[in-house]
Design a protein around this nucleic acid. Structure first.
Lengths: 342, 342
DNA sequence: CTGAAAGCGCTAACAA
DNA sequence: TTGTTAGCGCTTTCAG
């Protein structure tokens, strides 16, 4: 198949198409951007000869003219975290629905890089989605500076956001475990700087408090790194307590816990139950598979894009934060506690 | 901190900066793009007042003027595959080094989406990196149509590419296993359409052939899906053979194998050894941790970008394909075979 | 070393 | 419904 270049060797433009069709360039432009404004037969002629000539609208030119790039920025703290890829996919899909593509920026776990990347995105995208950013509120606000944006899984004053509330699901799982007979629970908390870690810890504490009368007690361990190695350490710490069931900050940490317990020959779920959070792919793959709470990825992405889109269209609108709920997923890492040793 | 907008409310441009500095717009332009062409003191004055005014070059305008967007497209077949995030990161980092950002496109495992996305990227990026694309060579060539591009982990005639050759590492691991006393090996092959699957299968076959004299025999199973579930099936199939060691297509499949064997109470590595491929994060996290071959991610990304950069600068240059090597990583999923049953 | 001016490809009033 | 005419913000000859 021949390359779709103008005979002259240059890419075809609305002008070359216009000439070939015997219409003006504006008509060609309209045929693409406001099809309703051009007579049917003309439009079709334009569209087909444009296709034949391999014409592709030049996004940059369009962007300079309109002031809109039709691109959204998505900055993630760590693309390597299994939570992110599904989010990226969800955001991308939703963005496509509103005619936008997304440029992904990975901060490689550095808060500094985050703000720098945001800066870089200015004038390159119409809006920003920040997935659980690590930068301080101040730094964030400064970097964002006027650019429409929405946060995912973090709330910052004055900024719109969509967050996932896991307290219901966590309580449900807690109840279930208590029903199984567990009484002493461990909270393996995540990084103290993490918004999500705070939320989850709070949710679990609240649940445990409510259950105090039922004999439930909670021992708090950590903070631990939200990583496999952090999980190994958390697992070791867990064994120093009387807890028979543990809430890990997230699935990755839970995997570490599983590994550490296995290494010390303590059986899961027979001797200890462990629950993760997020339901990343990994949760299904480890042995035993993880009981966890699934984040509503698609909805998270959709909502973020909807909010952002709205915000781009109506600058200066008030910042709202919408809350979605996680749902409990019971797998093989939870069970009744072992009967007291003989 | 005040928003960095011109008093008039509009974003500042080279013109507003020029005016503020009492120079012409071209000088401001040069101060940013060809600093060497403007006198030191002038340049510094410009740069600092530009900063003070919060000026940011408008990428789109620059792009229309120069014909270069300083953006690269990266299309992946499935961002959810744990192999991809590190690649994305590596590519992005390398791209940043040459002043480009990258827009990520996830084909969600559809070959059709792949070519469509490539089409969408035309006129939006200066070049393309296609990570193990699934689309046919023909479809690919047609969609690419003149856009500079390099493939990763796949070779297609006439197209430059960077690939990872695992044959050396695989042979090394095979030798090691044979040294342990294993004699019957299984090849759990990946999707027949996958270029990588073909390469790996070929490498293992070649190794086994070479070792025939040493009593090594190879049983080929599959093809299986390159997924956890595919791995479960592969694990089941494995147990129907006399093989004591298995090469899985990749780490994800290997995880499935591990799970299936565990479910059937066969111990790894005591009763079976299994080796994966790629060394994704997962490989370290499962129990037992996977012996595998590590892909040189950073080098893969670097090389891809270098090749692409080169190609963008010199259109019409001949397509070269550079080969990098994977390195063996021994972990806990391999060991000597169990002594024959009593 | 700096300025003037043309132009990149497209859109958006405004007329016709 | 279509064409004319200005720009959008930046780069880039070409003069000076």
């Amino acid at each position: 198949m021949a390359a779709h270049t103008h005979p002259s060797g240059r890419r075809s433009t609305i002008y070359s198409v216009a000439q070939a069709c015997g219409v003006s360039s504006s008509t060609v432009s309209r045929a693409f951007t406001r099809p309703d404004l051009v007579r049917d037969d003309v439009r079709e002629r334009i569209l087909s000869t444009a296709a034949a000539m391999g014409y592709r609208p030049n996004r940059s030119a369009r962007a300079t003219a309109t002031g809109r790039t039709a691109m959204l920025g998505l900055v993630v703290p760590d693309i390597t975290n299994p939570f992110m890829p599904p989010l990226v996919r969800a955001v991308q899909r939703a963005a496509a629905d509103i005619g936008c593509s997304v440029t992904l920026m990975d901060a490689e776990e550095s808060a500094g890089a985050e703000t720098q990347l945001i800066g870089q995105l200015h004038g390159q995208v119409d809006g920003l989605i920040l997935a659980s950013p690590r930068a301080s509120s101040r730094a964030l606000a400064e970097a964002i500076d006027e650019l429409p944006c929405v946060l995912v899984n973090r709330v910052v004053k004055e900024l719109p956001s969509v967050v996932c509330d896991n307290s219901g699901a966590l309580a449900h799982l807690g109840d279930r475990l208590a029903g199984h007979g567990h009484r002493t629970f461990a909270l393996l908390s995540g990084p103290s700087a993490s918004w999500a870690a705070k939320q989850r810890a709070r949710a679990i504490r609240a649940w445990a408090n409510r259950k105090e009368d039922a004999g439930v007690s909670l021992v708090e361990l950590g903070p631990f790194d939200a990583s496999y190695d952090g999980g190994r350490r958390a697992g070791a710490a867990l064994l120093d307590t009387a807890a028979t069931a543990a809430f890990a900050f997230d699935d990755v940490m839970a995997c570490g816990v599983l590994a550490e317990l296995d290494a010390r020959d303590v059986q899961v779920p027979m001797q200890r139950s462990v629950v993760g959070c997020d339901d990343v792919l990994l949760a299904r793959m480890v042995t035993p598979s993880l009981t966890t709470v699934a984040a509503p990825m698609a909805a998270l992405g959709d909502t973020a894009i909807t909010l952002l889109h709205h915000r781009i269209a109506n600058p200066g609108i008030a910042a709202e934060t919408v809350t979605l709920s996680g749902t409990p997923v019971v797998r093989d890492s939870t069970a009744p506690p072992a009967p007291p040793a003989p």
